[in-house]
Simulated scan of single mutants.
Amino acid sequence: MNAKRWIAIGIAAGLLAASVGFQTLFAVINSNFTEAFDSATGSTYMSEEVVEDGDMTNRIAVLKVEGTIQDTGEEASLLGSATYNHTAFLEQLEQAGMDDTVGGVIIEVNSPGGGVVESAEIHDKVVEVQEEYGKPVYVSMGNTAASGGYYLAASANKIVAHPATLTGSIGVIMSTLNYAELADKIGIKEEVIKSAEHKDIMSGAREMTDEERDILQSIIDDMYADFVQVIVDGRGMPEDQVRELGDGRVYSGKQAMENGLVDDLGDLEDTISMMKEEQGLENAEVFEYTGSGFGMGSFWATAAEGLFVSDSDLLGIKQLMGKSNSPEAMYLYTE
């Protein structure tokens, strides 16, 4: 092996070692800064932007659910993200509930839904804000507020949809691809070693058995029953009516109102006006949380990271660390 090749190998090894070292350093910095600062302050920093000036002691908080409702496992950071951040949203909702200056909460929903668990967590947090903190929660529906987007809205004190909003899609879906015939044609065979008969349920390499289909259908039926009950409790509708409406179809905002799924028609500004008038918040300041909620420790940790690597490099690392998705039950509207 010539000298140039040895030099190239040495450089590559050095770069790899440096990369591993920096990533380890970032992890230590983030852990130490976050733990130390958050333990010292016991507080969480939430940046805010005033939408309408008014009484700063009696405010309306506007929160946004934008995109698919799914916990990707990503922590909030200063880099920001156009995608939905589940942990950050729950923190914002909790903060709005705890904040004594907040007299009401509006959730602006523009989402086709998402994970069953995540949708339920938002719904439960909405109920907590209402019951534990005694604050009204209104929902303003945007272009789409379907399936899980409707699930989280069902318990709101008031639901306002635009006439052209796509909502409804009440139901649960679970799907996977079956590539067994294609695998046979190109000569690919999957070998599976499993501990029990149903361990590879929903495998795409073979046909699903009737027993497996029954098992999965029973799970979907349980989740659907929960969805129906949430609407029965939140909207005060008879169960048979909810099940009749909840056949998976979407409704326009106008149709949803005619069927009792929403309370009024309008946009976000209309929803704010309704809350002000109906909840005694006529002079309230209206504000939004800008960006993700994050502990001050995370703030300084991210600042420390910036001393060593650029934002674009950090974003690239995050993209390279994406995870694959396994089949799962979803409260999701799919076109």
Rank of each mutant, 00 (worst) to 15 (best):
I29R: 01
S111W: 10
A145K: 01
T101D: 14
L268D: 04
A183L: 15
Y150M: 07
G21I: 09
Y289D: 03
G236Q: 12
S195Y: 07
E128S: 13
L79Q: 11
A164M: 12
W6A: 00
A27E: 13
E108A: 14
S111I: 09
G168Y: 10
D184N: 14
G234M: 09
L261Y: 10
H162G: 01
D200Q: 05
A154L: 07
A120N: 14
A303E: 11
F33H: 04
I317R: 06
S273C: 02
N143M: 10
N110S: 06
I231K: 02
A183F: 15
E239L: 10
A196T: 14
E285N: 10
A82D: 10
I219D: 08
G103Y: 06
I106Q: 05
N325K: 13
T101Y: 09
K189T: 15
P238M: 03
G148P: 04
E211W: 01
E328T: 11
D270A: 09
M237C: 01
E191T: 15
N30T: 15
S81D: 09
G14L: 11
T87L: 08
G248D: 03
I7T: 06
T209H: 09
I122Y: 02
S298K: 13
A36R: 14
K185F: 10
F299D: 00
S312F: 10
L268E: 03
T209E: 08
E258W: 01
E190N: 12
S324D: 15
K189W: 03
M98G: 03
G114M: 02
Y331A: 04
P238D: 14
N283E: 15
S169K: 10
S175W: 12
M46H: 14
E244N: 14
A8I: 14
Q70W: 08
T167P: 06
T57I: 03
M141F: 15
A205H: 13
A329R: 03
A180Q: 12
G103D: 07
S273I: 08
V62Q: 01
R5K: 07
I170C: 02
D99E: 05
